[in-house]
C-alpha cells in the first residue's frame, strides 16, 4: 500500500501511545497521531490540549489548530490552561507530544532562537506549552524532519529540556520526571539509551538506508541494540489519516 512519509510519521507516532494513557497533544501532526491512536489501538486514551480542552473521544474533522470549533464540540472538559498545567505538574500526563525545529543528541529542543539569543539568525515562535510539556509530562514524544541542520550535536537554545547533557541532568535541575521517549523523524525513530541518555537509532523506515540516516544526522549516531525496520502503516491507520486530512495539508507528499 502506498503512503507518504508524513503518513508513516503520524502512524509511527500514534503507535507510541498506549491505551488508557493521558496525552498532552501538541499542534499539527501530533493532533492527527492522537486521533489515529484513539481510533485504532488506544480507544481509551485521553487528550489534553493546553488551550484548555480535555477529550476522551476523537474528532472527525480536520483540525488546523487545537482551538478549532470541532475540537470543543463533544469535549469532556473545557477549562483554563492553568488547570491542565496543574494536573500535568502533579504528574497526571503520561506523554507529551510535540513538533520542533532543532533537537540535539540528548533530546533538547530549540523552538526559540536559531543562532543564539544575542544575534539570532532566525527567530522561531518560542515555547508555547512545549517547555511545560517537556518538564512535567512522564515522557516526551517528538516529531521532526530528519535533516543535518535540525538533528544537531548541541542546540543553540534549550526551549524544551530533554536530558540536558546526559546522566542525571534532569534530577540535578530539579525536574520532577520525564525526558524524551521517542523522536519520530522523516527517516526513522530514535530512542534514548537509558544509561547514557543519548538518542540512538531505534528503527528505520522501509526503503531508507542507514547511510542516509547518518548523512542527515549532526552527531555520531549510535545504533540501539534493538534496531529494526519500522512496520509500515496498516490500511486501517491510513484510512483514519485520509478520512481527516483529505487534502493532504499535513500529510501530503513532501
Amino acid at each position: 500500500m502506498n503512503y507518504t512519509t508524513s503518513e508513516l510519521m503520524v502512524v509511527a507516532a500514534a503507535r507510541e501511545i498506549a491505551d488508557h494513557e493521558v496525552i498532552e497533544v501538541g499542534t499539527r501532526l501530533p493532533i492527527l497521531a492522537f486521533t489515529v491512536a484513539k481510533r485504532t489501538h488506544a480507544p481509551n486514551a485521553v487528550g489534553f490540549y493546553d488551550c484548555g480542552i480535555v477529550r476522551d473521544t476523537s474528532v472527525e474533522d480536520m483540525l488546523f489548530t487545537m482551538g478549532d470549533t470541532p475540537n470543543l464540540k463533544g469535549a469532556q472538559w473545557c477549562t483554563s490552561t492553568n488547570n491542565l498545567m496543574y494536573l500535568m505538574q502533579k504528574g497526571d500526563v503520561d506523554a507529551g507530544f510535540l513538533g520542533g525545529a532543532e533537537i540535539d543528541k540528548f533530546g533538547n529542543i530549540n523552538t526559540s532562537y536559531i543562532g543564539g539569543i544575542e544575534e539570532p539568525k532566525v527567530k522561531l515562535p518560542g515555547s508555547g506549552g512545549a517547555a511545560d510539556i517537556a518538564a512535567l509530562s512522564k515522557r516526551l514524544l517528538v516529531i521532526m524532519n530528519h535533516e543535518k541542520r535540525r538533528l544537531k550535536e548541541k542546540v543553540d537554545y534549550v526551549t524544551t529540556p530533554g536530558y540536558g547533557d546526559g546522566g542525571n541532568w534532569r534530577e540535578e535541575q530539579g525536574l520532577p520526571r520525564g525526558g524524551i521517549g521517542t523522536l519520530i523523524t522523516t527517516l526513522g525513530t530514535l530512542k534514548p539509551n537509558m544509561e547514557t541518555k543519548e538518542l540512538e537509532l531505534y528503527s528505520i523506515y522501509p526503503g531508507v538506508s542507514i547511510e542516509e540516516i547518518h548523512e542527515n544526522t549532526g552527531w555520531e549516531l549510535k545504533h540501539s541494540k534493538y534496531l529494526k525496520e519500522t512496520e509500515p502503516p496498516l490500511k486501517e491507520e491510513l484510512d483514519v489519516i485520509r478520512s481527516i486530512d483529505k487534502e493532504g495539508f499535513w500529510t501530503g507528499n513532501n
Partner: peptide, 19 residues
C-alpha cells in the same frame, strides 16, 4: 512557584524568572 522551566534557556532570556 513552578517545577516547569527548570533547565531551560528561558531562564537566560528572561532573567526575571528566578530559581
Amino acid at each position: 512557584p513552578t517545577k516547569s522551566l527548570l533547565g531551560t534557556d528561558l531562564l537566560k532570556s528572561n532573567p526575571r524568572i528566578e530559581i
